[in-house]
Amino acid sequence: MAAWTWMFLLLAMAAGCDRPPADRKAAERLREAIAAETGDTNTVLFVENGKIQIRSGNQRLVLDQTGSRKRPEGLPGDIILPTDARYDLWTEGPRGSTLSLRTGLPPDRLLDFLRAQWPAAGWKETSTVQAENVWSLTFVHGDSQATFTIESEFEPAPATRALLFIETSPGEPAP
């Protein structure tokens, strides 16, 4: 599935557009959307430990709509994030990982924070794109690439939502 599509689906879910465990039709729509994108008609949605779990192919997504201050296990140490971040989604797939978080920092202050902290951890900023009130910021470090999508959120309370997509090594060069 295209990275943007994953981001949109996950952003939509994290924002509470659909609540699959409470609504079988919503779950079915989500399943159909994933099947349309991936060709995988065997998507499984279930609840475990109070969190929504989605399994599509060998991708497993975990969605915690309550948000947690606990840093997700498996999140690399050089991913520096604001101390007030609340994490509501962490996924790991064969080619990359996705993290969704909310912070009280406004988008411009979050951008400043990332630009100050990440280079110190070895990351190099390679591109910035702004469209309306959405920012996209890309860093590279060795063979890893991290792309932030940042936007303001007003419900249930004013905050900034950041979606981070970390792509793992592009692999060995193929002659």
Binding site: W4, M7, F8, L11, A12, A15, G16, C17, V129, Q130, A131, E132, V134, S136, T149, E151, E155
Partner: peptide
Amino acid sequence: RKCFLLLLAFHALNAA
């Protein structure tokens, strides 16, 4: 409404 706004943002990102 939130879904609609996200959809707009999604298209805005693609258009960027």
